[in-house]
Each structure stands twice: as structure tokens, then as C-alpha cells.
């Protein structure tokens, strides 16, 4: 198989694009694709500071590497979720990535910053699914760090497969408010929020894993232990079966939704007007934000457990 750009022996085959590349040409293709996505959706400009949420996985580290290569001013934010060996390995790989490239990295450890608020213990105390608590904590800490650091933009490593799986889930359940908000750029709905962007929304997991491998990025290959049986993985499997039979389906599903479907849902009812949380000051739909409600619930449940024992 030959590279479509230079005719050297290909290293990467992309059935979704009906093409193949050698290593240097794939790296060029990947970075140019991210740059075009940023420009197409007007995500940010070169004079804006970008906070990149990194987890130690292939997508977020590939994104950070690409943004640096493209000349953007970035800083990393790693949130230590307290999920045993998985979190330890993720943090180590993220720190190593940043140190080797001389990049600035903020590390917020849930276990240290908020005593005993690691995801497993919160899930156990509240009997909520771990992923639910994880999402609430991530959103809060990402928003807070972006605000505190004066960043214009928060970038996450959500990729095409994530977007396609989420879109499938939203369509299956006709989640109109979520369909109205499913886009690669979310403008702030409150002065204390920053713009949230997903520069990899057109980049498949295969592409980001390939990029990470070819760039020598040492990322966490293991999946989060809490993700076993997660609904999103079922949606991803469905999309991969479609993609296997009809290459390009995932990209068409997401991009056609954005160009044709999204405008139809844009008038869906808004979820709520946002005020400010009475406890932490961050935007909230009620008096107290979801994060502070969750933290209070953990405290209440633990106090009850102590009283019972």
C-alpha cells in the first residue's frame, strides 16, 4: 500500500477517507485536520490562551501535542480522580509528557483537594454510578480552573467516535435540549464560564491512537475500570459495525448532523437560566450547583454511616 501524498510505503490506512499515508504524511494530515477544524468552527485564535484538559489518554495527549505543534499557547489540566492504579498511571504519563516537552501542567487531585472525594468513594457513599459523579466533578473543576487561570478557552479531547456515540444516544432517546447543544464549540452561557471546544470532533479514535503512537506519546492504553458495560461503549460498538460495512459513516453522521440536523433542534427549550451557586460561586441552575450538592450529599451520607455504626 502506497502513501497517497508521496507514494512511499504506507504505514496507516484510513478506510473512512479511502486513503493511506506514510508516517510524516499522516502526521501532516492529522495536524492539518485539527487546524482546519479549529478554523472552520472558529474555536480560538492564536492570541488566546487555551487550557487543555488532559487525562493521560491518547486523545487528550494527541490534542495537546498538536496544539503545541501548531503554535498555540496552552497549559494542561489533569484531574486526579483517585481511581487506584488507573489514576496513578494516568497522572504519571501526563506528568512525563509535560516534563519532556517543557509544558505547564496543573494537577488537581480530588483525594487531596477535597478530602476523600475520589470517584470510587463518592460513588460508594452516594450509590450513584461512578461515571455520573465523575462527569459532575470534571465539569466543576475544569470550569473553575479555566476561570481562575484567566483562560479564554477550555479544550477537551473528545473525538469523532465520542461525538457519534453521543449523537446516537441523543437521537435514540430524542434528547432535544442535548441535541440542540451537541456542537464542537459551546459559547459560555454565564460570565464565569469560558468557551468549550472539541478540536478532535472530526478525528477518529483510530487516527488519534495512530498519531500518538507515531509521535512516541506514551499514553494510558487501559480503559477506566468504571467504564465496563458503559452505555457509551455499546453505542461505539454499534457505530463501529456500521463503519466496518460502510466506511465514512461516523464522519457523515456527525458532520451531516451539524450542517443539516442541528439547525432544526436549535429552538429546543433551554435547560435553565443560570445563576450563581451560593456555596462556590460557580454558575448553577438552582441555588446550589450540582457539584456542591454532590459534595454535601457525600458528607451527609458519611455522617449517617458513622451515626449508624
Amino acid at each position: 500500500m502506497k502513501c497517497k501524498r508521496c507514494s512511499a510505503t504506507a504505514t496507516v490506512q484510513l478506510r473512512s477517507h479511502n486513503t493511506a499515508f506514510c508516517k510524516p504524511c499522516f502526521v501532516f494530515f492529522f495536524q492539518r485536520g485539527v487546524e482546519r477544524a479549529i478554523a472552520r468552527e472558529r474555536m480560538f485564535s492564536r492570541d488566546e490562551r487555551i487550557l487543555v484538559a488532559v487525562s493521560g489518554g491518547k486523545d487528550s495527549l494527541a490534542l495537546w501535542d498538536t496544539l503545541v505543534a501548531l503554535g498555540y499557547e496552552t497549559e494542561g489540566l489533569y484531574l486526579g480522580l483517585g481511581i487506584g492504579a488507573y489514576s496513578s498511571a494516568s497522572e504519571q504519563k501526563t506528568r512525563t509528557f509535560a516534563e519532556r516537552r517543557g509544558l505547564r501542567l496543573q494537577v488537581v487531585a480530588l483525594d487531596e483537594a477535597e478530602a476523600g472525594l475520589g470517584i470510587p468513594s463518592v460513588a460508594a457513599a452516594t450509590r450513584r454510578p461512578a461515571c455520573s459523579a465523575c462527569g459532575t466533578f470534571k465539569r466543576h473543576h475544569f470550569d473553575r480552573a479555566a476561570l481562575a487561570g484567566g483562560f479564554a478557552v477550555l479544550a477537551t479531547g473528545h473525538n469523532l467516535d465520542d461525538e457519534a456515540a453521543r449523537l446516537l444516544g441523543n437521537v435514540l432517546h430524542w434528547q432535544l435540549p442535548y441535541l440542540a447543544k451537541q456542537r464542537p464549540v459551546l459559547e459560555p452561557t454565564h460570565p464565569r464560564f469560558v468557551r468549550k471546544v472539541r478540536p478532535l470532533y472530526r478525528t477518529s479514535e483510530l487516527e488519534s491512537a495512530t498519531y500518538a503512537f507515531l509521535r512516541g506519546i506514551d499514553y494510558v492504553v487501559e480503559e477506566c475500570p468504571n467504564s465496563a458495560g458503559a452505555t457509551q461503549l455499546i453505542y461505539k460498538d454499534v457505530m463501529n459495525r456500521l463503519e466496518n460495512e460502510m466506511p465514512g459513516s461516523k464522519l457523515a453522521f456527525v458532520t451531516d448532523f451539524l450542517s443539516h440536523g442541528l439547525p432544526l433542534f436549535a429552538k429546543a427549550p433551554e435547560i435553565a437560566d443560570l445563576g450563581e451557586c451560593a456555596r462556590c460561586g460557580m454558575p448553577a441552575a438552582g441555588d446550589v450547583c450540582g457539584y456542591c450538592r454532590l459534595v454535601a450529599e457525600v458528607g451527609r451520607r458519611r455522617a449517617q454511616a458513622v451515626a449508624h455504626s
Partner: peptide, 24 residues
């Protein structure tokens, strides 16, 4: 390796899944 490449005895191959459900 691309799909059309050959693998043979004596090779050591890793098949690394690209699907992530945790780290992003």
C-alpha cells in the same frame, strides 16, 4: 502495519485497541 502487510512465524505482534471509555 496496514491490512495488506504480511505477518509470519517468528513475528511478535501487538493488537492495541483504540476504543476508549475512560481516558479521553
Amino acid at each position: 502495519l496496514t491490512d495488506d502487510a504480511f505477518v509470519d512465524d517468528d513475528d511478535t505482534i501487538e493488537l492495541r485497541a483504540v476504543i476508549s471509555g475512560g481516558a479521553g
